[in-house]
């Protein structure tokens, strides 16, 4: 087993790779990952489609009510967190460290609030996933989204820590931008979930 074995003295680094596209690898990677995530949601929406449209059952399950108003407020909270995220990136580019700190903290707290309200909704919504297929789809879709919010928050937390440790500059802030893209995706996805599950 001596594949790739080399003389020890060969200790220089790799030659810099040719950059054959204008897009940055990390950004492209995140976009592809988001495509993959969209497809996960797509599969859950397929379940939604089959149970609501193909089977033609009532929505939500008989006797169940979805708190449209509270969820609407929650939607507003999540959407405003997208704005603050954008503001954070803008502030970073302008070199406004105070704005960057305020922005990331606000974004993070808005996200936490959203998640808290969502969990609170589960407690009070009055039905369990085991009650009906409609309930399963409701918990499936909102739960899947909640899990994404959680992951997004984790990424924001990392960014937050790094912001306060003095990372990122107007020139180098990809580590802030890429989690930001993910966070915007999570927000847009919520709008789709909210419209299809609660409003339609």
């Amino acid at each position: 087993m001596e594949a790739a074995a080399l003389p020890i003295h060969d200790h220089h680094g790799p030659p810099p790779a040719n950059q054959s596209a204008r897009v940055q690898p990390q950004v492209l990677g995140m976009l592809l990952f988001i495509i993959s995530e969209v497809m996960v949601f797509g599969a859950f929406f397929t379940a939604y489609f089959f149970i609501r449209v193909v089977t033609g059952d009532s929505w939500p399950g008989e006797g169940d009510h979805l708190p449209k108003a509270i969820a609407g407020v929650n939607t507003a909270i999540l959407l405003s967190s997208s704005l603050t995220m954008h503001w954070t990136v803008e502030a970073t580019i302008k070199g406004n460290r105070a704005g960057m700190k305020a922005g990331i903290v606000t974004t993070f707290l808005l996200g936490v609030t959203f998640l808290f309200i969502q969990i609170n909704e589960y407690v009070h919504v009055g039905f369990a996933p085991s009650d009906s297929a409609q309930a399963s789809v409701f918990y499936g879709l909102t739960g899947l989204h909640g899990a994404h919010v959680f992951v997004g928050l984790l990424l924001l937390l990392f960014v937050l820590i790094r912001v306060f440790r003095g990372h990122f500059s107007p020139q180098a802030h990809r580590g802030l931008e890429v989690p930001g893209i993910y966070w915007h995706f999570v927000d847009v996805m919520w709008v789709i979930v909210y419209v299809t599950v609660y409003l339609l």
């Binding site: 993959s36 995530e37 497809m39 996960v40 797509g42 599969a43 859950f44 379940a47 089959f50 149970i51 193909v54 089977t55 059952d57 399950g61 369990a128 996933p129 085991s130 009650d131 009906s132 297929a133 409609q134 309930a135 399963s136 789809v137 918990y139 499936g140």
Partner: peptide, 28 residues
């Protein structure tokens, strides 16, 4: 992602009592 989701459904049905595939409760 679709095969991952199909197995999520199975896991949710099997472990947490979801009804994605329980015809008696409206599953498909």
């Amino acid at each position: 992602p679709f095969v991952a989701a199909s197995q999520f459904f199975v896991l949710l049905d099997r472990a947490l009592g979801f009804n994605f595939f329980n015809a008696a409760k409206g599953g498909d």
